[in-house]
């Protein structure tokens, strides 16, 4: 079992995965509560296209994807905050639109199927040394900003009108949340895959909300769940040579089931 840690690529995946799991768990609580659960899905499709274009043009995928996805994330918030479009349809528009463009561009070039497959389903092998440095720095920035502005992020999520009326810079914090989300999605999808990255955002938050009642305990619990599930998933994927993303999500499903059961038993006991 422990010989897995002698492979450098596993260590890289371990470091990046743990940090990204933390980021996605923290932001996930806010996104789920703000009814933006599917934003991860939308943004990951945009990231997919951006990376596809980068691959075709021989650019570094992460450096291209991050600004593009941040822009898309602003656009999504604008579209749904403007009130002309409902949040879910705005996300569907952006995500399928971007995906179509990505697929079209890829079809122009042949012989890059491995990369595309990796972006779709994720791969621990996809993480290069350059990616590790980049991912570690960015996820530490995300974690730092989240912790520093934790109270403000809570206030804006719980009651935006109140926050705005009492003079808190609501637009700034909404922007902050969307930038942090965009970065987290791009970092996470290399490993988990564009199709599954949403689950990293949604599952830990949903599980901990079943059992915990205060915001702080939900946030802490969801961070713990996310990291534990990631580590367990990574081990399983090594043991059975299964894709990491799918393994992590399966563990998350199991944890969710356990938390639902705990909630049910607690309710019965009352």
């Amino acid at each position: 079992m422990f010989e897995m840690f002698s492979y450098p690529f596993i260590i890289r995946a371990l470091v990046v995965g743990t940090l990204v799991s933390l980021c996605s768990a923290l932001l996930g609580v806010n996104l789920v509560l703000k009814r933006y659960s599917m934003i991860g899905d939308g943004l990951s499709h945009v990231a997919f296209s951006a990376m596809a274009v980068a691959t075709v043009m021989n650019w570094a995928p992460l450096t291209v994807a991050i600004p593009v996805v941040i822009a898309a994330s602003f656009l999504l918030l604008r579209l749904s905050a403007g009130g002309r479009m409902k949040g879910d349809s705005a996300i569907a528009l952006v995500s399928t639109g971007a995906l179509a463009i990505g697929i079209f561009i890829i079809s122009m070039r042949s012989g890059i199927n491995t990369d595309i497959n990796n972006y779709m389903f994720g791969s621990v092998l996809a993480i290069s040394k350059y990616d590790v440095v980049f991912s570690v720095v960015l996820s530490l920035v995300v974690l730092g900003l989240y912790i520093v502005f934790y109270n403000q992020i809570f206030a804006v999520t719980f009651d935006e009108p109140f926050a705005k009326a009492t003079g808190i810079r609501v637009d700034f914090y909404n922007m902050l949340i969307s930038v942090l989300t965009a970065i987290t999605i791009v970092l996470g999808m290399r490993m988990i895959g564009a199709l599954l990255i949403s689950s990293l955002i949604i599952f830990p938050a949903m599980s901990s909300m079943r059992v915990f009642k205060s915001f702080r305990s939900v946030v802490i619990c969801s961070a713990v769940i996310s990291v534990v599930c990631f580590l367990a998933g990574l081990m399983i994927s090594y043991q059975y040579s299964a894709p990491t993303g799918a393994s992590v999500v399966i563990i998350n499903i199991a944890v969710f089931a356990v938390f639902c059961a705990v909630d049910y038993i607690k309710a019965k006991a009352k």
């Binding site: 009814r35 109270n151 206030a155 719980f158 009651d159 109140f162 003079g167 808190i168 205060s214």
Partner: peptide
């Protein structure tokens, strides 16, 4: 910053996990 506001309740708050203390103190942020 001298305005205290009590908005109509939103759907989000109905299942929001937050303790009473967390909600009350969030008013101090301004």
């Amino acid at each position: 910053r001298d305005v205290g506001y009590l908005p109509q309740q939103t759907a989000i708050q109905r299942d929001f996990p937050a303790s009473v203390r967390e909600v009350v103190i969030s008013g101090c942020l301004n």
